[in-house]
Protein backbone atom coordinates (compact mmCIF):
# COMPACT_ATOMS: atom_id res chain seq x y z
CA UNK A 1 0.00 0.00 0.00
CA UNK A 2 0.97 3.63 -0.48
CA UNK A 3 0.13 6.05 2.29
CA UNK A 4 0.56 9.79 2.57
CA UNK A 5 0.89 10.83 6.20
CA UNK A 6 0.34 14.33 7.52
CA UNK A 7 1.79 14.30 11.00
CA UNK A 8 1.65 17.06 13.59
CA UNK A 9 5.17 17.99 14.69
CA UNK A 10 5.63 20.14 17.77
CA UNK A 11 8.77 20.59 19.85
CA UNK A 12 7.12 21.47 23.14
CA UNK A 13 4.05 22.80 24.88
CA UNK A 14 4.73 26.45 24.11
CA UNK A 15 6.23 26.06 20.67
CA UNK A 16 3.86 26.32 17.71
CA UNK A 17 3.50 23.10 15.77
CA UNK A 18 2.81 22.28 12.16
CA UNK A 19 2.05 19.39 9.87
CA UNK A 20 4.83 17.53 8.08
CA UNK A 21 4.02 15.28 5.16
CA UNK A 22 5.60 11.85 4.70
CA UNK A 23 5.12 9.52 1.76
CA UNK A 24 5.28 5.81 2.54
CA UNK A 25 5.58 3.09 -0.08
CA UNK A 26 5.25 -0.62 0.65
CA UNK A 27 3.04 -0.33 3.67
CA UNK A 28 1.91 -3.79 4.68
CA UNK A 29 -1.79 -4.12 5.40
CA UNK A 30 -0.81 -6.41 8.29
CA UNK A 31 1.02 -3.62 10.10
CA UNK A 32 -0.63 -1.89 12.95
CA UNK A 33 -0.74 1.89 12.68
CA UNK A 34 2.09 2.11 15.19
CA UNK A 35 4.19 -0.39 13.28
CA UNK A 36 3.83 1.85 10.26
CA UNK A 37 5.14 4.73 12.38
CA UNK A 38 7.96 2.48 13.65
CA UNK A 39 9.03 1.79 10.10
CA UNK A 40 8.79 5.44 9.17
CA UNK A 41 10.90 6.33 12.20
CA UNK A 42 13.57 3.80 11.27
CA UNK A 43 13.73 5.49 7.89
CA UNK A 44 13.86 8.96 9.42
CA UNK A 45 16.69 7.99 11.75
CA UNK A 46 18.63 6.51 8.86
CA UNK A 47 18.13 9.78 7.00
CA UNK A 48 19.34 11.66 10.06
CA UNK A 49 15.97 13.27 10.70
CA UNK A 50 14.28 13.50 14.02
CA UNK A 51 11.82 10.61 14.39
CA UNK A 52 8.18 11.22 15.25
CA UNK A 53 7.59 11.07 18.99
CA UNK A 54 4.62 8.96 20.01
CA UNK A 55 3.88 6.78 23.00
CA UNK A 56 2.91 3.15 23.23
CA UNK A 57 3.68 0.23 25.43
CA UNK A 58 1.69 -2.99 25.54
CA UNK A 59 0.51 -2.79 21.93
CA UNK A 60 -2.38 -5.04 22.71
CA UNK A 61 -4.93 -2.41 23.60
CA UNK A 62 -4.94 -2.61 27.37
CA UNK A 63 -2.29 -0.32 28.87
CA UNK A 64 -3.73 2.96 27.58
CA UNK A 65 -0.34 4.47 26.73
CA UNK A 66 -0.95 4.99 23.03
CA UNK A 67 -3.44 7.31 21.45
CA UNK A 68 -3.67 10.20 19.03
CA UNK A 69 -6.11 11.51 16.48
CA UNK A 70 -6.31 9.88 13.08
CA UNK A 71 -8.37 11.86 10.60
CA UNK A 72 -9.94 13.70 13.50
CA UNK A 73 -10.91 10.61 15.43
CA UNK A 74 -9.40 9.44 18.70
CA UNK A 75 -7.62 6.11 18.05
CA UNK A 76 -8.75 6.24 14.42
CA UNK A 77 -11.86 5.12 12.60
CA UNK A 78 -12.33 1.63 14.00
CA UNK A 79 -14.77 1.27 16.89
CA UNK A 80 -13.58 -0.13 20.19
CA UNK A 81 -9.93 -0.14 19.15
CA UNK A 82 -6.77 1.61 20.29
CA UNK A 83 -4.28 2.79 17.67
CA UNK A 84 -1.93 -0.04 18.51
CA UNK A 85 -4.62 -2.49 17.44
CA UNK A 86 -5.68 -0.55 14.38
CA UNK A 87 -4.26 -2.22 11.30
CA UNK A 88 -3.43 -0.65 7.98
CA UNK A 89 -5.87 -2.93 6.16
CA UNK A 90 -8.56 -0.53 7.33
CA UNK A 91 -7.13 2.23 5.15
CA UNK A 92 -7.13 2.37 1.41
CA UNK A 93 -4.20 2.44 -0.95
CA UNK A 94 -3.03 5.95 -1.68
CA UNK A 95 -4.95 7.45 1.20
CA UNK A 96 -3.86 10.64 2.93
CA UNK A 97 -4.03 10.23 6.69
CA UNK A 98 -3.88 13.15 9.10
CA UNK A 99 -2.38 12.49 12.51
CA UNK A 100 -2.71 14.94 15.40
CA UNK A 101 -2.08 14.67 19.12
CA UNK A 102 -4.91 14.36 21.61
CA UNK A 103 -5.84 17.93 22.34
CA UNK A 104 -7.47 19.38 25.42
CA UNK A 105 -6.64 22.19 27.77
CA UNK A 106 -5.77 19.63 30.44
CA UNK A 107 -3.45 17.70 28.06
CA UNK A 108 -0.50 19.90 27.09
CA UNK A 109 1.63 18.61 24.22
CA UNK A 110 5.06 17.36 25.25
CA UNK A 111 6.46 16.47 21.84
CA UNK A 112 4.73 15.73 18.53
CA UNK A 113 2.04 13.18 19.42
CA UNK A 114 3.03 12.81 23.06
CA UNK A 115 0.78 14.65 25.50
CA UNK A 116 0.78 14.97 29.26
CA UNK A 117 -2.22 13.11 30.66
CA UNK A 118 -1.16 13.23 34.29
CA UNK A 119 -4.28 15.27 35.08
CA UNK A 120 -6.20 11.99 34.89
CA UNK A 121 -4.04 10.58 37.66
CA UNK A 122 -4.64 13.74 39.64
CA UNK A 123 -8.40 13.12 39.44
CA UNK A 124 -7.88 9.55 40.62
CA UNK A 125 -5.82 10.75 43.56
CA UNK A 126 -8.82 12.63 44.89
CA UNK A 127 -10.93 9.58 45.43
CA UNK A 128 -10.69 6.88 42.78
CA UNK A 129 -10.09 4.24 45.42
CA UNK A 130 -11.49 2.46 48.44
CA UNK A 131 -9.62 3.40 51.61
CA UNK A 132 -8.99 -0.04 53.01
CA UNK A 133 -5.65 -1.03 54.47
CA UNK A 134 -3.72 -4.15 53.71
CA UNK A 135 -4.29 -6.58 56.55
CA UNK A 136 -7.79 -5.48 57.49
CA UNK A 137 -9.79 -7.16 54.73
CA UNK A 138 -12.46 -9.69 55.69
CA UNK A 139 -12.76 -12.99 53.86
CA UNK A 140 -13.43 -12.37 50.19
CA UNK A 141 -16.71 -14.25 50.31
CA UNK A 142 -18.04 -12.56 53.44
CA UNK A 143 -19.88 -9.89 51.44
CA UNK A 144 -21.95 -11.26 48.56
CA UNK A 145 -22.07 -9.08 45.47
CA UNK A 146 -24.66 -9.85 42.86
CA UNK A 147 -23.32 -11.28 39.66
CA UNK A 148 -24.98 -8.42 37.83
CA UNK A 149 -23.36 -5.73 39.98
CA UNK A 150 -19.94 -7.33 39.66
CA UNK A 151 -20.33 -7.56 35.93
CA UNK A 152 -21.53 -3.97 35.58
CA UNK A 153 -18.75 -2.78 37.86
CA UNK A 154 -16.32 -4.56 35.59
CA UNK A 155 -17.78 -2.85 32.51
CA UNK A 156 -16.88 0.49 34.03
CA UNK A 157 -13.61 -0.67 35.56
CA UNK A 158 -12.36 -1.66 32.12
CA UNK A 159 -11.32 1.97 31.42
CA UNK A 160 -7.69 2.07 30.31
CA UNK A 161 -7.13 5.75 31.08
CA UNK A 162 -5.98 6.57 27.55
CA UNK A 163 -7.70 9.95 27.43
CA UNK A 164 -9.58 9.35 24.16
CA UNK A 165 -12.80 10.54 25.82
CA UNK A 166 -11.18 13.83 26.75
CA UNK A 167 -9.66 14.21 23.31
CA UNK A 168 -12.94 13.50 21.53
CA UNK A 169 -15.04 15.68 23.80
CA UNK A 170 -15.80 19.11 22.34
CA UNK A 171 -15.28 20.43 25.88
CA UNK A 172 -12.17 18.45 26.77
CA UNK A 173 -14.10 16.96 29.64
CA UNK A 174 -13.05 13.91 31.64
CA UNK A 175 -16.62 13.08 32.63
CA UNK A 176 -16.62 9.60 31.10
CA UNK A 177 -13.31 8.79 32.78
CA UNK A 178 -14.48 10.10 36.13
CA UNK A 179 -17.95 8.60 35.74
CA UNK A 180 -16.52 5.20 34.90
CA UNK A 181 -14.44 5.12 38.07
CA UNK A 182 -17.24 6.39 40.25
CA UNK A 183 -19.69 3.91 38.70
CA UNK A 184 -17.30 1.01 39.17
CA UNK A 185 -16.89 1.77 42.85
CA UNK A 186 -20.53 2.70 43.59
CA UNK A 187 -21.77 -0.59 42.18
CA UNK A 188 -19.80 -2.56 44.74
CA UNK A 189 -20.75 -2.63 48.42
CA UNK A 190 -17.11 -2.00 49.32
CA UNK A 191 -17.28 1.36 47.56
CA UNK A 192 -20.30 2.56 49.53
CA UNK A 193 -18.85 4.19 52.64
CA UNK A 194 -16.88 6.83 50.75
CA UNK A 195 -19.16 7.58 47.87
CA UNK A 196 -20.21 11.13 48.76
CA UNK A 197 -16.75 12.27 49.58
CA UNK A 198 -15.41 10.58 46.47
CA UNK A 199 -17.73 12.27 44.02
CA UNK A 200 -17.31 15.70 45.59
CA UNK A 201 -13.56 15.62 45.55
CA UNK A 202 -13.20 14.10 42.13
CA UNK A 203 -15.58 16.57 40.50
CA UNK A 204 -13.91 19.55 42.10
CA UNK A 205 -10.54 18.23 40.99
CA UNK A 206 -11.69 17.70 37.43
CA UNK A 207 -12.63 21.33 37.05
CA UNK A 208 -9.63 22.65 38.88
CA UNK A 209 -7.40 20.73 36.47
CA UNK A 210 -8.85 22.54 33.47
CA UNK A 211 -11.18 19.92 32.06
CA UNK A 212 -14.46 21.22 30.67
CA UNK A 213 -17.88 20.05 31.72
CA UNK A 214 -20.11 17.51 30.07
CA UNK A 215 -22.62 18.65 27.49
CA UNK A 216 -23.93 15.15 26.85
CA UNK A 217 -22.85 14.96 23.22
CA UNK A 218 -21.61 11.40 23.75
CA UNK A 219 -18.60 11.84 21.51
CA UNK A 220 -16.66 10.16 24.33
CA UNK A 221 -18.72 7.00 24.17
CA UNK A 222 -18.31 6.85 20.41
CA UNK A 223 -14.52 6.99 20.68
CA UNK A 224 -13.87 5.01 23.86
CA UNK A 225 -11.70 2.04 22.90
CA UNK A 226 -13.33 0.06 25.68
CA UNK A 227 -16.81 1.21 24.61
CA UNK A 228 -17.75 2.40 28.07
CA UNK A 229 -21.34 3.59 28.11
CA UNK A 230 -22.34 7.16 28.96
CA UNK A 231 -24.41 5.51 31.63
CA UNK A 232 -21.23 6.18 33.60
CA UNK A 233 -21.91 9.90 33.28
CA UNK A 234 -25.56 9.53 34.30
CA UNK A 235 -24.34 7.65 37.33
CA UNK A 236 -21.79 10.37 38.01
CA UNK A 237 -24.60 12.97 38.11
CA UNK A 238 -26.68 10.70 40.30
CA UNK A 239 -23.81 10.38 42.74
CA UNK A 240 -23.41 14.14 42.69
CA UNK A 241 -27.09 14.79 43.50
CA UNK A 242 -26.91 12.22 46.22
CA UNK A 243 -23.93 13.95 47.76
CA UNK A 244 -25.34 17.41 47.19
CA UNK A 245 -28.66 16.91 48.92
CA UNK A 246 -27.29 15.06 51.87
CA UNK A 247 -26.09 16.49 55.14
CA UNK A 248 -23.72 13.78 56.16
CA UNK A 249 -20.07 14.66 55.82
CA UNK A 250 -17.98 11.58 55.40
Amino acid sequence: MRIRLRVWRQRGPDVPGKFEVYELEDVSPDWSFLEMLDVLNLRLVREGKEPIAFESDCREGICGTCGFMINGRAHGPLKGTTVCQLHMRHFSDGETITVEPFRARAFPVIRDLVVDRSALDAIMQEGGYISTNVGSAPDANSIPVSRWAASRAFDFATCIGCGACVAACPNGSASLFLGAKVSHLMLLPQGGPERKRRIRKMLIAMEALGFGGCSNTYACEAECPKEISVEAIARMYREAWRAMFSHSEE
Binding site: W8, M69, G72, R73, R103, N171, G212, G213, A219
Partner: peptide, 18 residues
Amino acid sequence: ARNWSGRGERYRYVFWQT
Protein backbone atom coordinates in the same frame (compact mmCIF):
# COMPACT_ATOMS: atom_id res chain seq x y z
CA ALA B 1 -17.70 29.47 28.51
CA ARG B 2 -16.36 26.70 30.74
CA ASN B 3 -16.62 24.15 28.01
CA TRP B 4 -14.87 26.28 25.47
CA SER B 5 -12.03 26.82 27.86
CA GLY B 6 -11.78 23.06 28.46
CA ARG B 7 -11.23 22.50 24.75
CA GLY B 8 -7.98 24.42 24.59
CA GLU B 9 -6.34 24.25 21.21
CA ARG B 10 -8.71 23.23 18.42
CA TYR B 11 -8.17 20.35 16.05
CA ARG B 12 -6.91 21.15 12.58
CA TYR B 13 -8.63 18.15 11.11
CA VAL B 14 -12.18 18.28 12.39
CA PHE B 15 -14.33 15.22 12.41
CA TRP B 16 -17.89 15.74 13.64
CA GLN B 17 -18.32 12.75 15.84
CA THR B 18 -21.84 13.67 16.93
